[in-house]
Design a protein around this nucleic acid. Structure first.
Lengths: 142, 142
DNA sequence: AAAAGTGGTTGACATCGTCAACCAATAGAG
DNA sequence: CTCTATTGGTTGACGATGTCAACCACTTTT
């Protein structure tokens, strides 16, 4: 029992998580966007009237962590903070044109990565693989 | 084009990578083991005469990063460094009993997580899912 | 109007990995 | 056999990133 204490399935999950995770893809998703920044930017782009804490929530960060990541994105010119008219405490975070561009570019990079991998899986069709991953992602949220 | 700039497949991959990655599972795989430590420990447990740099290589870390992570594991009592007899420059890193215990426990936790997810995927059998993930992991290495 | 709650920010801090310089040991060339 | 180049590993300084706790500003409750 000295060798191979962990199972294939754990190893596979880890491999995937590591490759597509914060450290994979050379530690950056696209240009100067880290993985958490990518997730944050996606959240912001798909949420109208996105409060700073909403960003933190989707990343599992504290609210101060949320402030920091939004500030970083703002400094890079990818988002803007605008005070809400309804409630002056809330900052609505909005994606800029530049942010949309970089988000779409990061997406492209992800897709390329995925297709490179998918091409190396002769036993599985790309469509099946995609379906399974989507199902898994859905299951993760539920 | 303001909404939803990134595709479902990217989103699914990110979801999975984030959940099973360094930040997922509450930021720790098991007890006081981080994700990179988990990977390192697995590498060490399956490699005989494991040099410090081998650990770094499997994580994509520099050699100084490798030293640091091995030291952390050593401080926690999960590995031991032993000078090689053949080449006195090399430290052979070996897993301890305590290390094996924690590795196996982390593995269990991973498996539980996976099965919870798999149970929520009615369209896909667990076996199919496992096969696909393994195929993907293999494709990643090749 | 006072008290309690909520959104956001900030300073101090811990963690973690890199870079570059370094030491020790080995291997190769003459 | 010695001198040099290479290799494995460590360390100090540093940058990046997230947390905690205290704080301010604005709202809501009483």
């Amino acid at each position: 029992m000295t060798q191979s204490t962990i199972s294939d399935i754990s190893r596979a999950l880890i491999e995937i998580a590591w490759h597509f995770g914060p450290k994979g893809l050379n530690g950056e998703c696209c240009e100067n966007l880290t993985m958490p920044e990518f997730i944050a930017l996606d959240k912001i782009s798909t949420t109208s009237q996105c409060a700073v804490q909403d960003v933190g929530y989707s990343l599992g960060f504290t609210k101060s962590g949320a402030t920091r990541i939004v500030n970083r994105l703002e400094k890079k010119g990818y988002v803007q903070k605008i005070k809400s008219h309804e409630d002056a405490r809330i900052c609505c975070v909005e994606i800029t044109k530049s942010g949309e561009r970089v988000l779409s570019s990061a997406n492209t990079r992800y897709m390329e990565q995925f297709h490179t991998i998918a091409a190396k899986m002769p036993e599985h069709s790309v469509a099946d693989t995609v379906n399974m991953l989507k199902a898994m992602a859905t299951a993760l949220k539920g």
